[in-house]
Amino acid sequence: MANTTKLNLIFGDVTLGVSGPHFRYIFAYDRGGLESLVRYGKEWLYRTPVPAFWRATTDNDRGNGFSRQSAMWLGADLFTHCTAVAVRVDGQSIPLPIAPENNRYTDHETATTVGITFTYTTPTVPATTVDVTYDVNADGGLTVAVHYHGVAGLPELPALGLRFIMPTPASGFDYQGLSGETYPDRMAGGQPGTYHVAGLPVTPYLVPQECGMHMATDWVTVTRERTLNNADPDHEPFQLTVKRQDAPLAFSCLPYTPSELENATHQEELPTPRRTVLTIYGAVRGVGGIDSWGADVEPQYHIAGDVDHDFHFEIAASVQN
């Protein structure tokens, strides 16, 4: 079936639309990323996904000065912007199809595969770039590849991922991976299995901080019941699955961005949950724990800033759970 189905392409003036049965994606040149991910009429994105470079400071991060040493990445997390876009159709690179280049297309363009790469440039000193490539497969599945270019002189990263902010809070999520909240240096106790998490729990550490990480995951399915679409009165659950590709993925699914967590000194200061923040991580820094007023995370659980990092995952064509 997949090989006989063609993707419909809309070469717009500021976006590239890609659609097929039950799905429609809009890649926005002006917004610098995947602006819309619609499945069965339901929108999954609130803003374009951007690279995630920060985690809300843990008590150990504060104690050993890590957040101070890596503070540039907080700025990068907030202010990185898209500086280049490249499009491939059926494996062939094409000039960026905006006017007048797109005048040669019609309303009936199709392809078997489409790839689009957004290059993000960080406001760090020195700067670096992250390439995020989406390949739309004929069945509507999205393969996502993230490549971080290491640059000498950049501090260690608190995290490296791709953050998807969804328009409404999820009613829950399911995943196949390890029990509980796990980190690279705290995952031996995680029991492999398939787990359901109701709602979007924030681990109630006294001071809100990085939380909710799930290492070694095969897939995660997010369930929502509401959209922001005024013409959509339906409250039936609908789902989206992210799957591992070559390597297990790590993710967190929370109602808050790291900045929101970072700003609160108590749980009750966190804002009313309004979104779902699903972050897929290619690299996770350990949490440490020798002591909270000086000791660093063990070296093997650091994320170097001066070497390249790659990770891949798939926004699956169909729901898994």
Binding site: D185, Y205, Q209, G288, G289, I290, W293
Partner: peptide, 15 residues
């Protein structure tokens, strides 16, 4: 006293 479990911590117990 070891593994100072303040906040999100307790990483590295393997060592």
């Amino acid at each position: 006293e070891y593994m100072h479990d303040m906040g999100n911590s307790l990483g590295g117990m393997a060592s």
